[in-house]
């Protein structure tokens, strides 16, 4: 961990601060959320690494999608994701967001979340342990370090396609497009 290397801070304060100030949206999509409380409290203490749950998406830059994504939840996920400020990072937590997991043939869950919003990294497993979150975070640090956590840029670039995918499910969305 290079948190106290002042030289790095002076060279790229943005990157460094993004790394060590990951505030997560406290958003409960599915059963995966059960792993969050232990990870932020005494046992694993995520605050050591500057990770705390943020009260709302405007103040957060990390989006953990914890568990299966139903059609109804997806709408909220898209909305929340769009309201987060750039740069922002998303991590799919558990196998359900990756491929539907045990809901692989359910009629109202999303199988591939990254069709709708960009995902910077995945934590596989059902369910992953809190340690996995920390592993994911260190990977995310690396990605940020190497300018590879660019999901939000991808989203902006391919917004038309994402929007089309979103609209395919819902017909039309309540809100106007984020980008022109």
């Amino acid at each position: 961990m290079d948190r106290n290397q002042i030289g790095k801070w002076l060279r790229s304060p943005q990157k460094m601060s993004n790394k060590y100030s990951l505030h997560a949206v406290y958003f409960c999509t599915g059963c995966g959320i059960i792993e969050i409380p232990p990870s932020i409290t005494t046992r694993w203490d995520a605050e050591r690494f500057g990770i705390i749950p943020a009260p709302n998406p405007r103040q957060a830059n990390l989006f953990l999608i914890t568990g299966y994504v139903s059609l109804k939840t997806l709408k909220a996920i898209i909305r929340t994701y769009e309201q987060m400020l750039e740069p922002k990072y998303t991590v799919g937590f558990g196998s359900c967001p990756i491929n539907g997991g045990m809901y692989w043939d359910s009629y109202n869950t999303i199988k591939k979340l990254d069709k709708y919003i960009p995902i910077d990294g995945w934590i596989a497993g059902c369910m992953p342990r809190p340690e996995a979150i920390f592993v994911a975070v260190t990977h995310l640090w690396t990605l940020i370090e190497k300018d590879m956590a660019t999901g939000y840029i991808k989203y902006r670039k391919n917004y038309k396609q994402y929007r089309a995918n979103q609209e395919k499910i819902y017909g039309s969305l309540d809100w106007p497009p984020l980008y022109k």
């Binding site: 943005q14 601060s17 100030s21 409290t41 005494t42 203490d45 605050e47 050591r48 500057g50």
Partner: peptide
Amino acid sequence: HWRYGPPIYQPLIDVIR
């Protein structure tokens, strides 16, 4: 809370972010 806790300059990091 019996935790290690963030570094004392954590708010500064947050502000920079």
